[in-house]
Simulated scan of single mutants.
Amino acid sequence: MIDIRKRNERGHADHGWLNSWHTFSFSNYFDPKQVGFSDLLVINDDTVAPGRGFGAHPHDNMEIFSYVLDGALSHQDSMGNGSMIKPGNIQLMSAGTGVVHSEMNGSKNNPVHFLQIWVMPNVRQKTPNYQQIHVSDAEKRGTLRLIISPNGENGSLSIRQDTKIYAGLFDKDEEITFTADPNRHYYLHVAKGSIDLNGKEFKAGDGARIRKESALHFSKGQQAEILLFDLRPNELPERI
């Protein structure tokens, strides 16, 4: 079963310096039917104006994943990490007992477009942790490349949850059939372009809750960039 969530059904906030689309309930946007899926709590599709961003603010007990689509995102945190995140760089911050961080547009001239994603952890009050890797376009081209997993397998980042996240780029005749476990839940987010999943068309910003499927066939991509989440078979996030 593939339950489509159209891009124009998402929550929207335009603050001038920040244009944000919320897949799930976040901040002033609340929909009782959209409060997460399995351990996936937040997918915010953010575009930040040049020289602006999110100043220092705290988090705890959350797995926070940033995925830059265009531009550059400047990260600083209370663990002493500082980095410039660009397309291809994958960042994961495990907030644990607490961390303060900022995320600013790293350019004074161009906007930055990125996804911020929150996953509920399966342990609380652990030491905060920061990880970052680079995954080239070639590694994602025409396939689903594992970028986050519980055990950091195949060079992926290690998350504190029974969750795997894949990224892929698809264009023209590139296609793949992903073997799914019908006893797991999956979530698709289309970040750019358009693509077909099992014969259904998805455009940038569209998503889908996926249940009881054994094969996910991606085809007819048009400059598509997608994320696929492999999740526990729970309907809603559980706060431990």
Rank of each mutant, 00 (worst) to 15 (best):
V68K: 15
S20K: 10
L69T: 10
D31A: 04
R5Y: 14
A49P: 05
H15M: 12
K212D: 09
V99N: 01
S20I: 07
R10I: 05
I133F: 03
M1G: 03
S27I: 13
K212G: 08
L228T: 10
L228A: 13
S149A: 14
E213N: 03
L92T: 09
N183C: 04
L69F: 09
W21M: 12
E9A: 12
R145N: 14
E201H: 08
N8F: 13
G82H: 06
H57N: 04
L144V: 06
F114N: 06
H101N: 09
I165L: 13
D46H: 00
F24N: 07
L231M: 04
A72C: 07
G205W: 02
S38T: 00
S194F: 02
K126R: 00
L18I: 08
H185W: 02
Q161P: 04
H59A: 06
H12W: 08
G168V: 06
L169A: 11
N110A: 15
N183R: 10
R145S: 13
P233W: 00
S214R: 03
R232Y: 10
P182M: 15
S83F: 07
E63Q: 00
H12M: 05
A191I: 15
I147K: 11
L40Y: 08
H217Y: 02
K200N: 11
S194W: 03
S78M: 15
V190P: 08
G96T: 05
V99W: 01
H185K: 04
P32T: 00
W118F: 02
E174W: 08
D45L: 01
I64R: 01
D181K: 13
Q222I: 11
V119E: 05
E153Y: 02
L41G: 10
G205L: 01
E9I: 05
